[in-house]
Amino acid sequence: MSELFRLATVEDAEELLNLTLRAYEPIRELGIKFPAATATIELVKENIQNSRCYVLESDKKIVATITARTYKEITNWPFLWWFAVDPLVKKKGVGSKLLTWVEETIIRDQLGEPAVTLATSDRHPWLIPMYERKGYERFFEVDQGEEGKGVFLRKILHPERYELEKHKELQKAN
């Protein structure tokens, strides 16, 4: 089995749309309105072109995807979203492998960022505990009315750098 981590290209859009819609079917059943849950080909292409959309290929087939982008309204750290794993390979560590690769290789080592963030809905029955098991901690919540709360989580990837950045931010504020 050959595996390849890489950035997605517009040529991957159809395959990514198919994978995403199948992966997000349980989200739609829960009535949670994540953009990826009702993605269109245009939205997938926009995500690929305007963010850093990564894929994990196994034997030349995309089995997982995750996007890193900025979300300056909430955080200065990179923000992960649009995380999807092919339902045919769920519970085999594929998603964890891609998530860890993006956290460590891209965000921590290449970009030099001390932390990473993501968000989910408090209405989702297992995502928050899953991310907490992977080292994420809640740092912000936003009330979305009928939709419940949006829960933002952060994972510190480099503690020394994180503390230094926090210290610099405090000095700026004073």
Rank of each mutant, 00 (worst) to 15 (best):
F79K: 01
E113Y: 09
V151Q: 03
L98S: 04
G150R: 15
R133V: 01
G145Y: 11
V102L: 09
P87I: 04
G148Q: 07
K90M: 08
E113W: 06
E132H: 11
E146H: 08
Q171V: 09
T70N: 12
Q110W: 09
T105I: 10
Q110F: 10
V142L: 15
G148H: 10
F83K: 00
P159Q: 10
L98Y: 06
K155I: 05
K72N: 10
I107E: 03
Q110Y: 11
Y71M: 10
L127N: 15
K172C: 00
W81E: 14
R133T: 13
K172L: 12
P78N: 10
D143Y: 13
P129H: 11
E165N: 10
D122L: 06
D86I: 02
K168S: 07
L111P: 02
I74A: 08
R123C: 01
Y136L: 04
W81Y: 10
L170T: 07
L111A: 03
W77I: 02
Y71R: 13
E160G: 04
L80E: 02
W126L: 07
A173M: 14
L127I: 11
Q144P: 02
N76T: 09
G112T: 10
K166F: 04
Y131N: 02
M130E: 02
D143C: 03
A115T: 07
Y136C: 02
I106M: 08
A119W: 00
K90P: 00
L170C: 00
D109S: 13
I107F: 11
T75Q: 05
N76C: 05
V94H: 03
W101G: 01
V102G: 01
K172F: 06
G148S: 09
L153H: 05
F140C: 07
E113G: 01
P87T: 07
L98T: 05
G150D: 06
E146V: 06
K92S: 12
R108C: 06
E147K: 13
A115V: 07
F152P: 00
E113M: 14
Y131L: 05
L88A: 15
W82F: 14
F79R: 03
T75V: 11
Q144A: 13
H167G: 03
A115L: 06
G145E: 10
Y162L: 02
E137A: 13
P125V: 08
K155L: 05
G95C: 03
E113K: 15
S121C: 08
L118G: 00
H167S: 15
G150I: 10
L118I: 08
R161Q: 09
D86P: 01
E141W: 06
E147I: 00
V151F: 04
Y71Q: 12
E165Q: 14
L88S: 15
P159A: 07
L111G: 01
R69G: 04
R133Y: 12
W81C: 13
S121E: 04
L118T: 13
S96W: 04
T120A: 03
L127V: 13
H158A: 14
K149C: 01
I74C: 02
F152D: 00
K92C: 02
T105H: 13
T120K: 05
V116G: 00
L157R: 06
F83L: 07
Q171K: 15
I106W: 12
E104T: 14
L98M: 09
F152S: 02
A173K: 15
T120V: 05
K172S: 12
G148N: 09
K168C: 00
P78I: 06
T120L: 01
